[in-house]
Structures are given as structure tokens and as C-alpha cells.
Design a binder for these strands. Structure first.
Lengths: 118, 118
DNA sequence: TAAATACTGAACCATTTGGTTCAGTGTATG
DNA sequence: CATACACTGAACCAAATGGTTCAGTATTTA
């Protein structure tokens, strides 16, 4: 059985599920920024913004470094390729789902669910 | 300023952030299934699986209907197009981020963050 | 009609999340 | 050297998550 344990995808999809964090990515796409300036732009405390940055960093979407007292944030080099790959692969399943209408009937006839469950 | 409020994306990325739910999508890509059979396959209580299905349904990724006492689940017709679009759009920003290295230096020279924050 | 099946809903639980405040620490700057 | 600035960390909070159990309801089936 396939091991449905894909921590990196867990982390990055979770990171992308917050509109503020998607906004941060969009913002960093236009150039680097400090945590303070991001906190200003997104009307949030510095501590709150730092937490968002940490989530994005753990997901590998953002990279930061500190010079003096300023921590600068940019988009990470890992990018969104793994996420794009998962989505593209499974998009095909959605498109092909009408071909599976026969399966619905056959599964319903089996009255115990499907055989891959046994 | 752009309104960073995109509830549909919030819901679907959150739905995709769980490995079990990604597994359910993969499974439904191979044909419809009842909640009970999914609960069996993913070694979970029926109630637990029902919750996952509800999350996927609210995100528009799964559609269900009940015939008799059996609720059948399939992939939704909305698909993953909105998610794919967001990812593809922002993937370019990641790829272009090296072009922004000059910005980093200029922003650091501004010593107050960046001007779009003012 | 009695028993089994498939789901539904409520309640509970521990953990995580998204935010805050407050109290530091280290770095520039006047 | 004193003050301001940028961040860090701890503590707290309400709400959401991902699971469970237990007690129904509705539908088949023997």
C-alpha cells in the first residue's frame, strides 16, 4: 500500500492555505523585504509576521538571513515545483473522472464497498 | 491594495495539506467509493472519514450523493484548476527571484524597509 | 419483523493555528 | 553613552483540526 506520508507537501500546502501567507509570497516576488516592513504592509504585529515567516521557511518557500538587526526575507530556491507536480498529476484524474462512471455502478453492486478494501 | 481574501483557495489548499485527504483524492481518481470503504482503506473510523469527506466537499474537490443508506463519493467537477493557476502564476516569481537581487541591496540601503510600506 | 448495515450527530479530547502582549537582547545612531 | 530600532522568545488566548466514542436514524436483508 502506498505510504500517504508526504511531510513536505503537508507543510507547503498548509503554508499556502493562509491568504496572508499567499500575499507574502506575492509581495516577495516583487523583491526582498524585512519582517518589520511586511508586518506594516499586512497590518500585523512584528511577532505575528515572524510566525508567518517561520511557517513559510519551514515549508521551504521563503529564505531569510540577518544583517545587523534586520532580517531580510526572499522567496526560497525550492520554489513551488513539488506542489505544481502534485496538482498537475491529479488534475488529470479530475478530468478523467467521467470515464469512471461505470465504476460507480459496479462498486455499488458490490454492496460492501470496493475490493481494494479487503 | 489587493484584497488577500481568497476563501476558495484557503479551503482547497487546507484540504490538500493533509496526507490522508490527498490519498482520498488519489483513490477517488481510480473510481467512486463509499465512506465506509474509504474508512476501511485508510484505517479510520467511519465518523473520522466522514469529516475528511466534508472538508473535501466544502473545498469543492469531492462530490457526494446518497442512494439508500450508502453515500458515494467522487471527485468534484471544479477540479484543481484554481489551485493550478495560483501555483503556476507564482512559480514564475520564484524563478525570477534572482533578478531581484539588486532590489535586496537597494532595500537594505533604504534602512526603513521598502517604500511600498509607507 | 428482527437484525445487520451505513451513515449522522453530539460530545469530548489533545494539539495546532493565528493572533496578541510583554519582556528581553543585540545593533545603530544622535 | 543613551536612546531608538529590529528582532526574539515566552506566555497566553480563542478557535480550528484530526481524531475518537457513543447514541441515534434510516435502509436492507434474512
Amino acid at each position: 500500500m502506498v505510504q500517504y506520508l508526504d511531510l513536505p507537501l503537508d507543510l507547503s500546502f498548509a503554508a499556502l492555505s493562509d491568504a496572508t501567507r499567499r500575499g507574502i509570497i506575492e509581495r516577495l516576488g516583487r523583491g526582498a523585504a524585512s519582517i518589520t516592513s511586511l508586518a506594516d504592509q499586512f497590518q500585523m504585529t512584528l511577532t505575528g509576521m515572524k510566525k508567518h515567516i517561520q511557517v513559510l521557511e519551514r515549508a521551504g518557500l521563503v529564505v531569510t538571513w540577518k544583517v545587523g538587526r534586520v532580517r531580510t526575507c526572499t522567496l526560497g530556491n525550492r520554489g513551488l515545483s513539488a506542489e505544481a507536480a502534485w496538482i498537475e498529476t491529479h488534475r488529470k484524474l479530475f478530468e478523467a473522472r467521467f470515464d469512471a462512471l461505470d465504476d460507480i455502478i459496479s462498486e455499488m453492486k458490490q454492496e460492501g464497498g470496493d475490493d481494494s478494501a479487503r
